[in-house]
């Protein structure tokens, strides 16, 4: 069983929902990413989603675009993200880590080389925004070879027959994009999300995590009533950026990020499931 499947099973046994924070590798600095990963786990994160910096992050809103630009300016690339996971694994063998990013850095490294390097580093899964099931055969073959999961997105615009197609290619969990838009968008509608999740569950037994538009404990708690996991990206990236802009030192940055995750953790856990 993969580390991700195991984690969801464990949470389900406890009647809890997964909290999945997102950060970009190398933001706000190269040396702070690994401490940040540990701090988020300490604050209550169940699974970590590490963004791979890319020059053209087409699905990101302004907050995460800027994080990609900062990370690139700091010199962070796919190889560095892998190094960070390797370093993280020295102290944490249990928390699943998935890489989220865009096709080209992975394509450039080569799918086989990527799969080998990522699994050796301790990465559990890959989520590429711009590789839909129609284009995924090659990369999926390599990920399966090394026992990594491939996390797919399902969107509000995905019709039922595509849900089935995506479910047939996915493993680990499925990520439901709660809004039509880019990361950090607003207007989250819990009833609408619930409706979509129910439809997706007709096609898969995989856990369903929800992201895009979850910004605080209240919105996370609302989504946790219907989903198996909650992804928090822009709000966390913004929190760290604000702290940096206010001149916080490294321990201050970690504390501020940890506070947000702990707050959201309490919100989710207070929700009757």
């Amino acid at each position: 069983m993969s580390r991700i499947a195991e984690r969801f099973q464990q949470l389900a046994g406890q009647g809890r929902k997964a909290l999945v924070p997102y950060m970009v590798a190398g933001d706000p600095s190269l040396e702070l990413t690994v401490p940040l990963m540990h701090a988020l786990v300490d604050a209550g994160a169940d699974i970590l989603e590490l963004g791979v910096p890319f020059s053209d992050p087409m699905s990101e809103g302004p907050t995460i675009q800027l994080a990609h630009e900062r990370a690139l300016a700091n010199g962070a690339r796919l190889r560095d993200a892998l190094d960070m996971v390797r370093e993280f694994r020295q102290r944490d063998a249990d928390t699943p880590v998935l890489l989220m990013g865009y096709a080209n850095p992975v394509e450039r490294m080569g799918y086989a080389a990527f799969a080998d390097a990522a699994s050796a580093a301790g990465v559990d899964a890959l989520l590429t925004v711009d590789i839909p099931p129609e284009e995924v055969a090659q990369v999926n073959a390599e990920l399966r070879r090394v026992g990594m999961d491939n996390i797919f997105l399902i969107a509000p615009t995905t019709p039922d027959e595509r849900m089935a197609l995506i479910a047939s290619q996915a493993s680990g969990f499925i990520y439901y994009v709660a809004v039509k838009g880019v990361t950090g968008a607003g207007n989250l509608d819990t009833a609408d999300v619930a409706d979509h999740l129910a439809r997706i569950r007709e096609h898969t037994g995989l856990p369903l995590a929800v992201g895009f538009g979850i910004k605080d404990a209240a919105s996370a708690a609302a989504i946790a009533t219907v989903a198996d996991g909650v992804v928090v990206g822009s709000a966390l990236v913004q929190r760290v950026a604000d702290a940096a802009a206010e001149g916080a030192d490294n321990s201050g940055l970690l504390a501020r990020a940890g506070e947000l995750v702990a707050e959201i953790r309490r919100g989710i856990d207070a929700t009757p499931s």
């Binding site: 925004v129 969107a155 995506i166």
Partner: peptide
């Protein structure tokens, strides 16, 4: 070629 876009656009 191909269709390398986010899922939200695939139906469109």
């Amino acid at each position: 070629g191909g269709k390398f876009v986010a899922e939200t656009l695939m139906s469109a």
